[in-house]
Design a protein around this nucleic acid. Structure first.
Length: 494
RNA sequence: GCCCCUAUCGUCUAGUCUGGUCUAGGACACAGGCCUUUCAAGCCUGCGACAAGGGUUCGAAUCCCUUUGGGGGCACCA
């Protein structure tokens, strides 16, 4: 049997990290069994339909490296892969269910249904359809008048959902609502469409969030009614926000596009997502896994059954690990769009700024958690800085006069340095510090603040090289003036 | 309210099926230290959990029951 699994999003918005984690599990499962991974668009809700959503979904999947074998754009033997193009099929099946006595027409108005629910709530009962149209004669409601078609759920007995991770889950039929299968606009509801499609598309395994568990008996009933064999179900736990609630837009940036914008790497995110709820077990302590390793080792039966809280801490760390593992050239290419987006360098990149970027890459590589961090880390290289306040230019355990002398000395020294590069600078700057009777750190920190207006920055000499002699000297001169003025004011005050 | 799922450090988890090797292991985060021109990175150390109560057993994180906690569902949404 060929494994066939699917991702069936409804195009209502951005796919978010919780859903995508489930998709990752599906994809991994399909690929490791040499099966098919199918994309199907469930656009039966015409009110919530967002035209851009399909493109966004596809982009997100592609960015994460989750390729599909059959789908709306590429077709396949079981098409079409868009539900709105399959409505005839659902109508046929709904009519078939009526004929078999498994469904019935219902023309109750939304107002009546709401009223019934209100009354039930008032009596502290579970709100569900009261069966008003359930036992009407077959011709009581004409197919031509507005109506819905409901599933005729048995009033007695139980329905068992086989979940391959949890075992049998048993539901009492009397608590299952007579679910609408076909809406009055002629479109199917999710429950009917998904069963018809999964069966006709030959889906063998369904892995999805456990928020679906309670609707599964309705589907099992539908399979029975249609005389079909249900697929194998595996309900995987939900991903929760740090507040412990089901992850949603409320939790801020949780869409795949957002992660991309923030500078997370697809491989890191993929790795992280796989480990959210799954682990290799057996005392294995490795956490960084390549896609190939994951394909080899992932095992759906090892996923945790309790929901997992999504937290950025570990993802940030893991993303950093992946960034550090990149080649410099690769990282450079990844970083350029972020510099450009921040308006720090033009598009396309002028050849004369390339050497500056190349100098910067190794300096920032082990300091980045996300690619976007490069903006804050290197803004002072590309943008003009505020002149640092005089007080910040005074070195540790030094007087203002000593600091001023150091600035003067450095300015003079860098002005006459022949090769303005980090390698040449460093040993000579160390020597200069010694000559001034300073520790290297004392001198370097003054220079750092003078040239960046930051207490914390990437390694000094590389930064100076990237900055270039001209800018470096200008900033040193400005700092020198500020400190000099300050020293004089202090002197006058005394 | 009713139904369903679930329960190990703050977080992700190993261990649970096949009780003893668990004074519960790892990772992230946090704290301290080393290294060091700042910050990172790296290395070392520390902090920190079997939800509670009953059973079963010579022995329970592991099996059973109850309670409690957490999550989800109860639409002409998916």
């Amino acid at each position: 049997m060929t494994v066939r699994v699917r991702f069936a999003p409804s195009p209502t918005g951005q796919p978010h990290i919780g859903n995508i984690r489930t998709v990752v599990f599906n994809w991994l499962f399909a690929r490791q069994h040499h099966g098919k991974f199918i994309l199907r668009i469930e656009d039966t809700d015409r009110r919530r339909y967002a035209p851009d959503a399909v493109k966004v979904i596809k982009d997100s999947l592609r960015w994460l490296g989750l390729d599909w074998d059959e789908g709306p754009d590429i077709g396949g033997p079981y098409g079409p892969y868009v539900q709105s193009q399959r409505v005839e099929l659902y109508r046929e099946k709904a009519e078939e269910l009526i004929e078999k006595g498994w469904a019935y027409r219902c023309n109750c108005t939304p107002e009546r249904l709401e009223r019934v629910r209100e009354e039930q709530r008032a009596r502290v009962e579970t709100p569900m359809y009261d069966g008003h149209c359930r036992n009407l004669p077959p011709d009581a409601i004409s197919p031509d008048e507005p109506h819905v078609i409901r599933l005729k759920v048995p009033r007695e007995g139980t329905t068992t959902v086989h979940d391959s991770l949890r075992g049998d889950i048993i539901f009492e039929n009397r608590l299952i609502d007579d679910q609408v299968l076909l809406k009055s606009d002629g479109f199917p509801t999710y429950h009917l469409a998904v069963v018809v499609d999964d069966h006709t598309m030959g889906i063998t395994h369904i892995m999805r969030g456990d928020d679906w568990i309670s609707s599964t008996p309705k589907r099992v009933l539908l399979y029975q009614a249609l005389g079909w064999k249900p697929p194998i179900y595996a309900h995987v736990p939900l991903v929760l926000g740090t507040d412990g609630k089901k992850l949603s837009k409320r939790h801020g940036a949780v869409s795949i596009a957002d992660f991309r914008k923030q500078g997370y790497l697809p491989d890191a995110l993929f790795n992280f997502l796989t480990l959210l709820g799954w682990s290799p077990g057996e005392g294995e302590e490795q956490e960084i896994f390549s896609r190939e390793e994951l394909l080899e080792r992932f095992d759906i039966t090892h996923v945790n059954l309790a929901s997992a809280v999504f937290s950025y801490d570990k993802l940030d760390w893991m993303n950093g690990v992946y960034i550090r593992a990149m080649s410099r050239e690769e990282l450079l290419q990844q970083l350029i769009p972020f510099w450009q987006q921040a308006g720090m360098i033009p598009t396309p990149v002028p050849t004369e700024v390339l050497p500056t970027l190349e100098t910067l890459v190794p300096l920032v590589q082990e300091r980045l958690k996300t690619l976007r961090d490069v903006v804050l880390l290197t803004d002072f290289i590309f943008n003009d800085i505020e002149t640092p306040p005089a007080a910040s230019l005074i070195g540790k355990k030094m007087t203002a006069e000593e600091s001023l002398a150091a600035l003067r000395a450095v300015h003079a020294f860098l002005g006459r340095l022949v090769d303005f590069d980090a390698e040449t600078m460093e040993p000579q700057m160390r020597q200069l510090a010694t000559e001034l009777g300073l520790k290297a750190g004392q001198l370097f920190n003054i220079v750092r603040v003078a040239t960046s207006n930051k207490k914390v920055a990437p390694p000094l000499f590389g930064c100076l090289e990237a900055l270039g002699r001209k800018t470096t000297l200008q900033r040193l001169a400005r700092a020198r003036e500020v400190l000099s003025d300050w020293v004089e004011e202090e002197r006058d005050a005394r």
